[in-house]
Simulated assay, not measured.
Amino acid sequence: MQQSEAIVLAMFGTTVESALQDLLAIQATVKEAYPKTPVTITFTSNQIRRIWHQRAADPHYLAQHPGIPEEILHIQGILATIANLQDQGYVRQVVQPTHIVPAEEFHDLASYVRGLGSIQTMKPRWRPFQTIGLGRPLLGAYSLKHAYADDIRIAAQTLASDAELARSRDAALVYMGHGNHYFPSGGLYLEFAARMRELYPDVLTLIGTVESFPTLDEVMESLHQHQVRRVLLKPFLIVAGDHAVNDLVGDEEDSWQSTLRREGFEVMAEVRGLGPQVASIFVAHVAEAAAEAGVELR
């Protein structure tokens, strides 16, 4: 009997080659947990997919980057990915986002999944999907079954090594999140930072965002209030992509590293994406989404 279950990892994506390892680490961890179930990657960013498709058609680029997986070069969007799996007989799917907060990208993804799962046919046996489950982002989502605060605490517990690294350098730990101008995700970031300070009280953990609240200015105000002079910067992003290498530690005057140094802070940086650190959390979210959807993964 042909297997009908599959897992789709819905990632924002990245165009930075070195950052792909953060995404592939998540896929590898999920595959290890479910070795008999296909685990497919999709990128939810239209722009990022277009760039990879352009690169896939560029012989010069391919010659310079021979190690890029075909799955990345020909990466598909969520609708195409789910549809292609369905066409192969995978009518019971679990879609797991690797987004950090339930903001714009997650809401769009949830809309796609709900729409596909609601398709009815005249004869029920010809419905395209038996079920499609949807997992939660890293810091949770609106749910009556899973308290988002528990997800935030689990994330903080999982990132204990970040606090230990800051402690070893006698520095405050400052994360850079992404944020969104149109979605109030700042409260989730602030609650995460509060849980970090609760779990690791000897390390001052703060978080700011690139695009919304809290800002770097607000982070610096807190650093001044606590009379901190040494700072460890770390991206609170799944990948150490463009925001990490440019906005966080770039040589430009407005990067976080440059700005903090102008303010008199001694700045160190750990430019690693969260992907490998939090992959186990996404495995747990896959398992919970599958159980709720009645999908047995192997």
Rank of each mutant, 00 (worst) to 15 (best):
L165S: 11
L165W: 07
A166D: 10
R169Q: 15
D170K: 15
D170P: 05
D170R: 14
A171P: 13
A171Y: 12
A171L: 10
L173P: 13
L173G: 09
V174M: 06
V174G: 08
Y175D: 03
Y175H: 12
Y175I: 09
M176F: 04
M176S: 07
M176N: 09
N180S: 15
N180C: 10
Y182Q: 14
Y182K: 11
P184Q: 09
P184E: 12
P184N: 12
G187Y: 05
G187M: 02
G187F: 03
Y189R: 02
Y189C: 00
Y189I: 09
Y189K: 02
E191Q: 14
E191V: 04
A194K: 15
A194F: 02
R195K: 13
M196K: 08
M196G: 09
R197F: 07
E198P: 03
P201C: 14
D202P: 08
D202M: 08
D202T: 15
V203L: 10
V203F: 15
L204E: 14
T205W: 01
T205A: 15
T209E: 02
T209K: 07
V210K: 12
E211R: 10
F213N: 09
P214W: 04
V219P: 11
M220K: 14
M220D: 03
E221A: 15
E221K: 11
L223K: 05
L223S: 08
H224T: 10
H226R: 14
H226V: 09
V228A: 01
V228D: 01
R230P: 08
L232E: 01
L232R: 04
L232V: 03
L233N: 05
L233W: 05
K234G: 00
F236C: 00
F236I: 02
I238D: 01
V239K: 03
V239D: 03
H243M: 03
H243R: 06
V245L: 04
L248C: 04
L248R: 00
L248H: 02
G250P: 02
G250E: 09
E252V: 10
E253C: 01
D254E: 08
W256E: 05
S258D: 02
T259H: 01
T259S: 11
T259M: 10
L260I: 07
R261D: 07
R261S: 13
E263T: 00
E266W: 02
V267N: 11
M268K: 07
M268H: 13
A269P: 05
A269F: 03
A269L: 07
V271I: 15
R272G: 05
R272T: 10
G273Q: 06
G273F: 06
